[in-house]
Nucleic acid binder design. Structure first.
Lengths: 334, 334
DNA sequence: GTGAAAGCGCTAACAG
DNA sequence: CTGTTAGCGCTTTCAC
C-alpha cells in the first residue's frame, strides 16, 4: 500500500508538495502536478483516511443510536439523517441498543475515544448517563425523537402534548368517552411519551371523565404488542370494552386492528383506533389509519443542524421550529 | 484531552508501561499498576481509538450498503448483521445509495482509504465496479441479498430460482394460468432477480403457456409501486386481467392488494397475490400474505462469517448452506 | 520488569 | 513555489 512519501520519492518531490497537491492547495507548479499524478496512478495510491484523522483530530463520522432499526419510524428518521449528513461529507454509524443500556454506554464511549465526532440519539435507555456525557461533551450530542428535561442538552422538541390532545379531542368529537391508551414505554415514562401521557390525563380531567386503569396498556411498541392489546380488548364484554384507543405508534395500532378484526369486531364502528407517526404503511392498513404525522424530514434536518453547529465553528442555521408541526391525519380507522 | 504520555508522566513511568497496562499485558508490577490507574482516573484519560487504528492499520469498522434502510426487509437484514458484528467487536457504518451509483462508489472508496476493514453489500448498483474492487480486495467484500456471477466474489447465495418456481407452482395448483409477475428491478435484471425471472420464464415453458408481456411489471420495489400495479390490473377487463400475481417483495404485494381491494376486487378470489421476503407486516396485511420467507438471521450470519474469515487469519466457521432455505408460507392471499 | 525510541501516514509550519 | 521537519497518540521492539 503506497504512502505519501513513496509518491514523493517516485515523483521526485517532497511530501509537503504531494500533500498540497492532494488537498488542492495553490502553489504547486504544473510540471510537478503532472509528475505527482503520474506517480499516484502508477502506484495506485489512495491517501490513508486514518492518518488524516489522527492529524486533524476529527473523523467525520457521526453515530446514530436507535433501539432497533426495524421500527419503520426510526428507519425513516435514519434515512433522513443519513441523507442529510452524507451530503455534508459525514459518514453515519448506526448502533442498536435493543433496549440494552450497556449497548448505549458502549456507543457513547466512542465519543470519548474520538471515534465519533458526534452522535444523534433517537433512543435513550439511561437518561442519567446521557445527561452526564452531554455535560462533558455538550456539542457532540443531540437528541432526536427523545426528550430529556435538561436545558443543557441539545434536542429536537415537538409538541406531543398538544398533538395527543388533538387526537383525543377528535375521538371525543366522534362521541367516544371510553378511550384506551397504549403508551410506547412504561406508564408514566419519565421521558418519551411523558408529555403524551400527561395530555391523556389532562384530557380526562378537562372532560370530567375518570380514567379506567384497565384501559391503560403500558406495552412496548411492536406489531405483536398491538396484537396482544387487540386480543385483550376483543375479549372484554360490551360494557368494559373501550370505544376507542389512542396508541403511541402506528405499529401498535395496526396490531390492534388486525387482532380485533380477527375477533369479529369492526373498526371504527366497534373500536376506533388512532395511531402515531404516520408511517408509510399506515395508509395501507386493513382500515387506513387515522394517525398523527411526524415531520420526519424537518426533524432530521434540525437534528443535523443542531449537531453541526456544535461541531463546526461556522454556524449553520437551524431549521425553524415552525416546520416541526405534528398533524392529525384523519382516515377511516377513527 | 489527556494522552498516554501525560499519564506516563503523572504516574512516573514510561509510556510503554502504560500501554502494556492498558492492554492487559503481563509484566507490569502491582505498584505501577496502581499509580497508572490513579493517573488515569485523575486525568479522565481515554485512549484515542484513531491512534490505535493508525498503529494497527485496522479500524474495526464494517460498512453496510443498502439502497434504502426504510425497506423493511433490508432493515431486518441490517438488524441481524449489526447485532452479529457488534457482538464480535465491530462497529457498523451504514450507507444508502438511493439507487445512485456514485454513492456506491464513494462507499467503496472507503475500503481503499482504510476507513473500513470490510463491507457487506446488500445492494449493488454497478456490478462491474463491484467486480473490480472485489478483485483488488477479495477479502473485504461480501454480497448479501445480491448475487453477481463471479466465483471470486464472496457472497451469500440462495436458491431463488427454486423458490420462485415453488411459488408459481402453488399458484398453478390453485388453478391459475394467467399469472402476472412484478420484478424487483428491471426485467430481465442482470443480477438480483435474474434467477427469479428465469424461473418465471421456465415455469411458463414447462406448462406450455405463453407469457403475456402485458403481465410483466418491471417496477421498483415500493408500496407505491405495488399500488400502481394494482390500479393498472383493476382497470383491466375480465379477459385481460391476470388471475394471480407473483411479486418480488411483500411491499409490492401489499400495495397491489390495497389497490385492487379499493377498486372492488377480492383477494384471492379475483386476484391471488404472492409476496416475497415474509416481512413482519405481511401477516397483518388486509389479507394475510402468502409469501416466500427468507432466512434473514442465517443469511446475516453467513455474510458476517464470510467477511470475518477474510479479515482475520483465524478462520471462523461459515454457517452451513443448509440453513439458507427459502420457504413458501401459505396464508390467505393466494 | 520497564524506559527510550522508532515509526504508522499525514499535515502544517518554517525555511529557503 | 517547495523540501524538511516536527508532531498527532499509540504500540512495539530493544536494550538495560
Amino acid at each position: 500500500m503506497a504512502t505519501i512519501s513513496e509518491i514523493a520519492k517516485a515523483a521526485g518531490v517532497g511530501v509537503g508538495t504531494v500533500s498540497r497537491y492532494l488537498n488542492n492547495e495553490p502553489h504547486v507548479s504544473e510540471p510537478k502536478q503532472k509528475k505527482i499524478q503520474a506517480a499516484i496512478d502508477e502506484l495506485h495510491y489512495t491517501p490513508s483516511a486514518i492518518a488524516t484523522q489522527l492529524r486533524s483530530q476529527t473523523t467525520k463520522n457521526i453515530g446514530f443510536l436507535v433501539s432497533r432499526i426495524t421500527n419503520p419510524f426510526l428507519a425513516a428518521l435514519f434515512d433522513a439523517v443519513e441523507t442529510n449528513l452524507k451530503a455534508r461529507g459525514y459518514q453515519v454509524l448506526v448502533s442498536q441498543t435493543h433496549d440494552d443500556p450497556t449497548a448505549e454506554k458502549r456507543f457513547l464511549d466512542q465519543i470519548k475515544t474520538h471515534q465519533l465526532d458526534g452522535v444523534i440519539m433517537a433512543s435513550v435507555e439511561d437518561a442519567d448517563l446521557v445527561r452526564q456525557i452531554a455535560a462533558e461533551y455538550p456539542n457532540s450530542i443531540v437528541l432526536l425523537n427523545e426528550e430529556i428535561e435538561d436545558a443543557a442538552i441539545k434536542q429536537v422538541t415537538l409538541d406531543h402534548y398538544q398533538a395527543t390532545l388533538n387526537g383525543l379531542n377528535y375521538l371525543y368529537q366522534q362521541g367516544h368517552r371510553r378511550i384506551a391508551y397504549a403508551t410506547g414505554g412504561d406508564f408514566p415514562s419519565l421521558r418519551h411519551g411523558q408529555s403524551r401521557t400527561q395530555a391523556y390525563q389532562d384530557f380526562y380531567t378537562a372532560h370530567q371523565l375518570t380514567i379506567d386503569p384497565n384501559l391503560i396498556y403500558p406495552k412496548r411498541h411492536g406489531l405483536k404488542d398491538g396484537q396482544m392489546i387487540g386480543e385483550t380488548i376483543a375479549q372484554l364484554n360490551r360494557a368494559q370494552r373501550p370505544e376507542a384507543i389512542f396508541t403511541n405508534s402506528d405499529e401498535v395500532a395496526m396490531g390492534v386492528i388486525a387482532a380485533v378484526q380477527a375477533a369479529g369486531l369492526r373498526v371504527p364502528e366497534d373500536l376506533a383506533v388512532v395511531g402515531y407517526d404516520d408511517q408509510p404503511m399506515a395508509q395501507f392498513a386493513p382500515v387506513p389509519l387515522t394517525t398523527i404525522k411526524q415531520p420526519v424530514r424537518a426533524m432530521a434536518e434540525q437534528a443535523v443542524a443542531l449537531l453541526l453547529q456544535g461541531l463546526n465553528a461556522k454556524a449553520e442555521p437551524v431549521a425553524s421550529k415552525r416546520d416541526l408541526q405534528l398533524t392529525l391525519v384523519i382516515r377511516k380507522s377513527a
